[in-house]
């Protein structure tokens, strides 16, 4: 079993998490042996395509999967060393928002269109802390200013529809900070935004991390976002982690063919600066992810992998350490294993 090397102040520890949900065809294992650990002050990213289990992971951590969809959890999720899988809904509510908060992909779904933005922020503060109403208003204005909003008072008085997409996302991030959480989980926080606004929001997350020491777990499908913000990254495919490690290691020394493919999907712009010389065809990953109800016994990526051998179709690889300067660089690939044992 893999044991992540722990730093001093571990905050969140996910060990061998298995999540099963009900589907019309029966019970489906959407997460398979997920191991993650986030220390206070970390910035981590989970990257993968739709359906890879990124969102299921965070919904499991926050226990937000609805009762009639959820079949069972197995494994362990610990917040500050305390298991949260078997605590009651009341205690869980103390963790959500106060210790871990969520920034959803579409800011509009987190905001109520019929109330002013300010009212929605102070409502959270009043609900989760002991501050008086006056203090709550002061805090809300302070948070909005911290988000780099110039006219905090105007935004405070506005309805969500009166704000631009970027401003709305800032408001939602301010809300997520209302109770000084130790960890913010951001689910594709910038996918719906313009490139320049996207950059501003990513810089804002970095600033929050730097100034407040808040740990950040960012969910994305874009390695460009990962490269910009995260210190470590987990690559997910079909409900499993296939590669995990420091961002620089995973980007410059990718070991799993899927990681490699995802990185290749980002167009290389070098040819533009070389007068159009060396323009390569746009890389694409063929095919579609497997149906989780109907998995083969082999590697889940085998059918789309351009390197796959016979052994890949019959044996499921385990997540193992690879030879790398990063001691926590883990890869789930039989071919990498074979290459490493050959080199020894």
């Amino acid at each position: 079993m893999i044991q992540a090397v722990r730093k001093k102040e571990a905050f969140l520890n996910v060990t061998n998490l298995m999540t099963k949900i009900h589907t019309p065809e029966g019970s489906m294992t959407v997460l398979d042996h997920i191991n993650l650990s986030i220390d206070k002050g970390d910035i981590m990213a989970i990257v993968g395509e739709s359906g890879s289990g990124k969102s299921m992971t965070i919904h499991s951590i926050l226990q937000m999967i609805t009762k009639n969809l959820l079949d069972s959890y197995a494994g362990e999720i610990e917040v500050e060393g305390k298991s949260i899988l078997d605590i009651g809904e009341k205690e869980m509510q103390q963790i959500r928002g106060k210790k871990i908060s969520l920034v959803a992909q579409n800011a509009m779904t987190s905001l109520d269109p019929s109330y002013r933005v300010g009212k929605q922020i102070i409502e959270i503060i009043l609900d989760k802390t002991n501050l008086s109403k006056r203090e709550a208003i002061e805090k809300a204005l302070y948070l909005l200013e911290e988000m780099g909003i110039d006219e905090a008072k105007r935004v405070f008085q506005s309805y969500p529809h009166q704000l631009s997409g970027g401003l709305r996302q800032r408001v939602v991030i301010a809300m997520s900070l209302a109770c000084d959480p130790d960890l913010i989980i951001a689910d594709e926080p910038t996918s719906a935004l313009d490139p320049s606004v996207q950059l501003q929001v990513l810089e804002l997350f970095k600033k929050i991390n730097r100034d407040l020491g808040t740990a950040i777990l960012i969910i994305t499908h874009d390695f460009g976002v990962v490269a910009r913000i995260a210190e470590s990254v987990a690559v997910m495919y079909a409900g499993q982690i296939v590669e995990q490690g420091k961002t620089s290691e995973v980007i410059y020394n990718p070991q799993h063919p899927y990681t490699n493919s995802l990185l290749n999907c980002i167009p290389d712009l070098d040819w533009i600066f070389l007068d159009g010389v060396g323009k390569k065809p746009l890389f694409q990953i063929k095919g579609e992810p497997p149906n989780l109800m109907n998995l083969s016994s082999g590697c889940r990526f085998a059918n789309r992998c351009h390197m796959a051998k016979d052994i890949c179709r019959s044996k499921l690889p385990e997540l193992k350490k690879v030879h790398s300067p990063d001691l926590n660089h883990l890869v789930r690939c039989l071919l990498t294993e074979r290459r490493e044992s050959y080199a020894k």
Binding site: D194, P195, L199, D222, G224, A227, R228, L269, I272
Partner: peptide, 25 residues
């Protein structure tokens, strides 16, 4: 395209192109 991405003339274009997220920073 090549001209625009190599030598954007307008300030707004420069700002827009600066926000491309690349792996190398």
């Amino acid at each position: 395209t090549i001209e625009l991405f190599r030598k954007p003339k307008h300030e707004v274009t420069q700002k827009l192109l600066s926000s491309i997220l690349t792996l190398d920073g």
